[in-house]
Each structure stands twice: as structure tokens, then as C-alpha cells.
Amino acid sequence: MRILHVTDRYSGGVGRAIDRITELVPEAEHHLLSTGIESTHGRGAYRGTADLPDGHVARVRAVRDVVDEVAPDVVHAHSSWAGLYTRVRRLPVPVVYQPHCYYFERPDLPGPVRRAVRSAERFLAANGSVVAAVSPREERLARSMGAHHVVRIPNAPSSAAVREAGARSGAGAGSRRIVTMVGRVVAQKDPRFYAATARAARAAGLGLTFRWLGDGDPDLVRELADAGVEVTGWLTADDVMRQMAASDVYLHSAAYEGFPISVLDAARVGLPAVVRDIPAFEGARLTAVGTPDEAAAAVHAAVEDPRQRLRMIASGDRLVGEMDETALHDGVVRAYATAAGGALVA
């Protein structure tokens, strides 16, 4: 089966998710039409690659041109804009649309914009594409958009690396106690929340070092730096895993998500995780917080309280047991079979 992946955000978590599919579904021939490469991690196992041009109209045309050239069995669209480019005009091949979190979930969207985005998703869902959801909540959202065929493709850790020395063991493991976040420095990941947590921890004298693995909006990067957060810039996937394993606790500050791979990566290396209390983590049994002060207290407890730390690590282990490589492989294969005319999965 030949697959054409399309995305305007081949960077950060979306890029890692697409690469992971190419690694874990080698029985398919993968092609990539993309833009937005911001990281230095290597491309996945693609038979061919092409760049999306500038401009929305040009990108819609480019999708059709590359489909004609590559002749894929399925087009796999990643994120909202790619969902538009591949579905606003019906293609001669089926489409699997993977939102990687719906944009209308962004909490600071004005009401009229949120309604317009929801309407666009409903309109595009009417063309019969298969929606790939990463969680039960995203499945419910997809069905509320009118999607008839929804298949679960859970994320999996971006590396098969096992924990090295079980990640750091908390207080006393090193001269600095390091809190880490991974991702693009953009509004979705809420770097201002992370910066506020760093300031709250410093004001309380908690002795924590805050680090952000990634890059992005220069103004937001500056705000992180002003709060004393170390921003590394883009790293290779292997370097990200090494930096996480050398940390003491992972804090995911995003305001809205599908389900972030970096949380699974933290669990894979044995790192306790603290997350925002957002719908993406419903049922995940992770330590969730609502404010920067709560986040500072939670990451401090993950370092200082051995029993709390072990409980948090156990929660991560359960999560990786449910969202792993086998589950991702089977979900992807089922989505492609559904799109290509196999037995429909409700």
C-alpha cells in the first residue's frame, strides 16, 4: 500500500508522529508532502518527499498534482490545514485525516472564530474521509463534527529507547533538579504558563531548574528566557530523549492537545510527569494541575517525595502500556484499510 502524508507542520510532535508511522508501518510505502521543518531530527523512511508551496490555493493544487504523480492508495493528512488542503476538493483517492488536536479546542479563541472553525470541520467531514483520533475524547469530537468513520490511532513514544538508569531519582541525583518541557514554543504549548511556573518556583525557593527542549516564536522564547527558563533550540530526537532522561520531572504546559507524544516519551524513560488539567488527559491518571502555583508544588513533590514520585512513574508506565508501538501500528493499518474500502470500523 502506498501512502502520501501531507502536513504543513512537519516539526515538533507532528513531525515525530509522522516519522514514527513510517518506522512502525514498514509494510506500506510512505511519501511526504510537507513544509514547516523546524527541527533537526531526521526524516523518516520516505520513498519520496516534496515541499508544499506558499499560499493556500497553491497548496490545494500541489496536493492534487502530487497525488497524480505518486498515485497513492491513501492520503494521510496531518493537522488542520492539511485536512483542508486534502478535503476541500475531493481527491481521486481516499483520505485519512488526523487532526493532532482540533484547533477549535484552543481556549483563547474568540467565539465567532471557534464557531467558524467547527463549521469548516463539519463541512470537510462530509466528504467521507476517515478521521484518525488519538484518544476517546478526540473520537467523540470527530463524531460531533459529523465524521462517519472514526478509527483510533493512539500515539506511541517517539523512541524505542528504554530508560537508562531509570531516569534521575530525584533529590540528590545531581547538583541541579531539572524540570523539562518539550515542544514548539507556540501559544498552544502555553510557554507563558511554563514561565509563570518557573517564577513561582523561584519565589518559593524550591531550587528547581526549568528547561524547554525546542524552539519557536521568538517573542515567546524571550519570555521564557526572561523567566529563567533554559531554551535549547531544536534537538535531534535522540538528544531530546537523552535530555529527558537526564531530567528529574516532566511538566507539560500545553493549554490544549490531542495527546502529546512527549508525555509518552517521559514515561518511556521513567520520568514522572505533571500535566495541565485539560480534556486531552481525561482518564490518563496523570498528575494534573490548574495553575502555575499548583504546577510548581507538583513538580517539587515529584522531586522531594519518594512515594509521590513512584506513584507518578507508575502512572506513566500504565499509560505507555496502553499507548505503545503495537497499538499505533494496528490503528494505522486499520485506518488505511477502512479508507481504502476494507471493513468499516465504527
Rank of each mutant, 00 (worst) to 15 (best):
D277G: 00
A246R: 13
H300Y: 14
E257C: 05
V299W: 08
D219N: 08
V229Y: 09
V221H: 00
A273E: 04
E230S: 15
G290T: 15
G228D: 10
V229K: 11
R285E: 15
D219P: 00
Y256N: 09
W212N: 02
S253T: 06
E223S: 15
T291P: 13
Y250V: 06
R211P: 03
P272G: 06
A246Y: 06
A273V: 03
G216K: 07
V269S: 09
P272Q: 08
D226K: 10
G233I: 09
D277M: 06
A297S: 15
A301H: 12
T236A: 09
V221W: 01
V263L: 07
H252M: 14
M241H: 14
D293T: 13
F259R: 01
F259A: 06
V229R: 09
A273Q: 01
L251I: 01
A302T: 08
W234G: 12
E282I: 12
G270Y: 11
R222M: 01
E223A: 15
G290Y: 03
A267K: 07
V299D: 09
A225P: 00
D215N: 12
F259V: 04
A297F: 04
A225T: 15
T232V: 04
S247Y: 07
P306Y: 04
V249K: 04
L271H: 02
V275R: 13
A295F: 01
Y250T: 07
G258N: 05
V274Y: 03
P260L: 05
P279H: 09
